[in-house]
Computed example of a mutant assay.
Amino acid sequence: MQTQAGDDLIERIRTHPADDDIVGPAANDLLSELYAGYPVENLGKLLHSDNEVLVGTGAWLLSELVELAAPMMDEVPALLASPLRAVRYNATAVVLENADERHGPIIAQVMNLSRDPESAVRWKVLEFLTEASIEQLQAGVSCLPPGQMKELAEWLILEDGEEPDLPGIVIRLEAGDPVTRLFAAAAAASLSDEQDTSLLEHAARVEEEEIRSFAQARLSELREDGADPGD
């Protein structure tokens, strides 16, 4: 564990937040130190800063650490509520990798970001809804108040069962409000495979840019996976 090196890198970032030529390389080096055992808790020195660059750097590092960010889950609610788009985006990634049944309120907070004003954040929430485990979704649902969000999350969980409502997914993709279409797109992505991409093709034609781009990316992945290596 190279504590001194990690401390020096954090101090370098804190001292030069406006200098991209310093912050970028230092952040990458700090990421390596964190993977090598430098305590992730020390990122609090960045996350608790009044400087947006420092908070953003800390949030990015957490998102890159995958499961190693778990000790910092108590920091995530504030990050999800950040006024900075990139911080909310990266915090959502941290929740996907680290939340479990103990983190229902945090998962519910992510679900509510499906109404975020920023398309990039909504894209990340769509990824979360597609990739989250049933246990994660159930934990989030248990902390949502009655209303549309809870109903949509409960519906999404049911679509993972043995008899998903495929026509219902199409209807929700073609009609309703943007949040309904986002949840329907998550169901479409979860249920699509190389043999049947029809649901994703519907999602790729909806009005919302984040849904279209997400669906198109998933379609590309499925087509690459299904391609004959000999072609």
Rank of each mutant, 00 (worst) to 15 (best):
G104H: 09
A189E: 06
A70K: 15
E208V: 08
A175W: 12
M73N: 10
V76E: 07
P167V: 02
K124V: 05
D165S: 02
Q136I: 08
K150H: 09
V170F: 01
N112T: 12
E208S: 12
S142L: 04
A91K: 12
D100M: 05
V76G: 07
L129T: 08
V179D: 08
S119G: 14
I169Q: 12
R205Y: 01
E135W: 07
A185I: 00
V170R: 11
Q109M: 11
L182G: 04
P83M: 11
E210R: 09
W123S: 15
G176V: 05
S213T: 08
L144P: 07
E201R: 01
T197R: 14
A217K: 15
A204G: 01
L173V: 07
V141W: 01
D160N: 13
N98C: 15
T180D: 11
K124R: 15
E174L: 10
E174V: 04
E127V: 04
P164G: 02
S82R: 08
E131W: 03
Q109G: 13
P178G: 07
I107K: 06
V76P: 08
F128H: 13
F183R: 05
Q195Y: 12
A185P: 01
W155N: 07
L126I: 11
I169F: 03
E159H: 05
R181Q: 14
T130F: 02
A70P: 06
D165K: 01
E207G: 04
G168L: 01
I107Y: 03
A139F: 01
F183G: 02
I171M: 10
F214V: 06
A120C: 06
A108S: 12
V94W: 07
E194F: 02
P145G: 05
N90M: 10
P105A: 07
E75D: 15
A217N: 15
E101M: 08
A99Q: 02
L129C: 07
C143L: 04
N112M: 14
N98G: 04
G176N: 07
W155T: 06
I106K: 10
G104F: 02
P71M: 08
P83F: 04
S192Y: 00
I157R: 09
C143P: 02
V170E: 12
K124H: 12
P178D: 14
V206D: 01
T130I: 03
P164F: 00
A81R: 15
V125R: 09
V94M: 11
E194T: 14
I211P: 01
V141C: 03
A185Q: 04
A184F: 01
A175G: 08
T130W: 05
A139C: 05
A189P: 12
E159F: 01
F128V: 13
L199F: 00
T92Y: 04
V110G: 03
E210Y: 09
I106N: 08
V110L: 07
P178A: 13
V110K: 10
V110D: 08
A188Q: 00
I171A: 12
I157Q: 14
A184I: 07
V170K: 10
R88T: 13
A215L: 06
V76Y: 03
P105I: 14
D177T: 04
P167M: 02
A91T: 02
T130A: 10
P164N: 05
I107R: 07
H103E: 15
